[in-house]
C-alpha cells in the first residue's frame, strides 16, 4: 500500500473517531447553536455545493434508490427504485419513479401538480404553490414522498443543515468514478451522509439516511447522476392523463398549499 494511501486511511479513521467523540459531547455544544455544530470543512463543502446547485437553472438527475423495510421480527428487506427527475427553475418539475414499492409520475408546471399511480390507474391534479421551493415544502407537509426531496430542497432553499446536531467531513471517497468529499451529519431522528463531488462540479453524488430509534435502523440510499444540460421537450412538464385512468381527490390539499404548518 502506498504511503499516501495509508496516510489517507489514517486521516479518515481519525476523522471518524473525532466524529464519534464529538457526538458524545453534542448536548453541551448544541446550546451553542448550529454554527458550532458543523465543522468548518463540512460547512465549506456544503456551501460550495449549495452555491453551485443554486446556479443551475435546468438540471436532470437519474437516481438509483434503495429503501430498507423492517418487517415483522426485525426481518430487513431492501426495496429498489429508479427515479428520473427534471427540474427547470423556478417552477417546473417532472419526476418518474419506477420501483418495487410503487411507480409514480409527478408533474408540476408552476400552477398545478399532477401525480399518477399506474397500478391504480388513478391520478390527482391539484392547484399547487407557485414556486418549486414552496411546492417541496408543501409536499413534505402533505406526506408525499418525493425521491431526493432533500437534494431538491437544498437546491432551492438550502436549509438542509438546519437543526443539525453535528456535521463533519469524514474524508474522501470515490463514487461512480468521481472523487468526493464524504460528510456525516446527525439530526435528532436521522443520521445522514452525503458524498459531494470535488472539482468544478460540486454536486451530491450519494446520500444515505439512517432512521434512528427504529428497530433495525433502516436506511435510505440514493446515488445520483447529474445532467446539467438536459434535453427538455415541449411536453416534459405537461401531464396527460393516460387512457383509462380516473381522477381522484387529494386528501391533504391544505398541507400542500402550506395551510397545515
Amino acid at each position: 500500500m502506498e504511503t499516501r494511501e495509508i496516510f489517507r486511511m489514517q486521516r479518515r479513521r481519525s476523522a471518524v473517531l473525532a466524529f464519534v467523540a464529538l457526538l458524545g459531547v453534542q448536548t453541551t455544544v448544541l446550546a451553542a447553536g448550529n454554527e458550532a455544530a458543523i465543522s468548518p470543512g463540512a460547512r465549506g463543502v456544503m456551501e460550495r455545493m449549495t452555491a453551485f446547485m443554486a446556479k443551475q437553472a435546468t438540471f436532470a438527475i437519474a437516481s438509483d434508490v434503495t429503501r430498507d423495510e423492517v418487517a415483522a421480527y426485525g426481518y430487513k428487506l431492501q426495496h429498489q427504485e429508479h427515479a428520473d427527475i427534471v427540474v427547470q427553475r423556478p417552477a417546473r418539475l417532472r419526476a418518474s419513479i419506477v420501483g418495487d414499492l410503487a411507480d409514480r409520475t409527478i408533474v408540476y408546471d408552476g400552477r398545478n401538480l399532477a401525480m399518477y399511480a399506474p397500478e391504480d390507474r388513478a391520478y390527482v391534479r391539484i392547484a399547487a404553490p407557485d414556486t418549486l421551493a414552496a411546492l417541496l415544502d408543501g409536499l413534505l407537509d402533505a406526506g408525499v414522498d418525493l425521491p431526493l426531496a432533500d437534494v431538491l430542497f437544498q437546491a432551492t432553499e438550502g436549509t438542509l443543515t438546519d437543526g443539525v446536531e453535528r456535521g463533519v467531513q469524514i474524508g474522501t471517497a470515490t463514487i461512480d468514478g468521481e472523487l468526493c468529499d464524504h460528510l456525516a451529519f446527525r439530526h435528532p431522528n436521522v443520521d445522514w451522509q452525503l458524498w459531494v463531488a470535488r472539482g468544478d462540479r460540486p454536486l451530491p453524488r450519494k446520500l444515505v439516511i439512517t432512521t434512528r430509534y427504529e428497530v433495525g435502523e433502516p436506511q435510505f440510499q440514493a446515488t445520483l447522476r447529474w445532467d446539467l444540460a438536459p434535453k427538455i421537450d415541449a411536453g416534459t412538464f405537461a401531464f396527460d392523463a393516460p387512457d383509462g385512468s380516473v381522477e381522484i381527490s387529494f386528501d391533504n390539499t391544505a398541507a400542500l398549499r402550506g395551510g397545515a404548518r
Partner: peptide, 8 residues
C-alpha cells in the same frame, strides 16, 4: 413493515 425515512 417500517420503511426507512427517505428525507432529512
Amino acid at each position: 413493515g417500517r420503511l426507512a425515512q427517505s428525507s432529512v
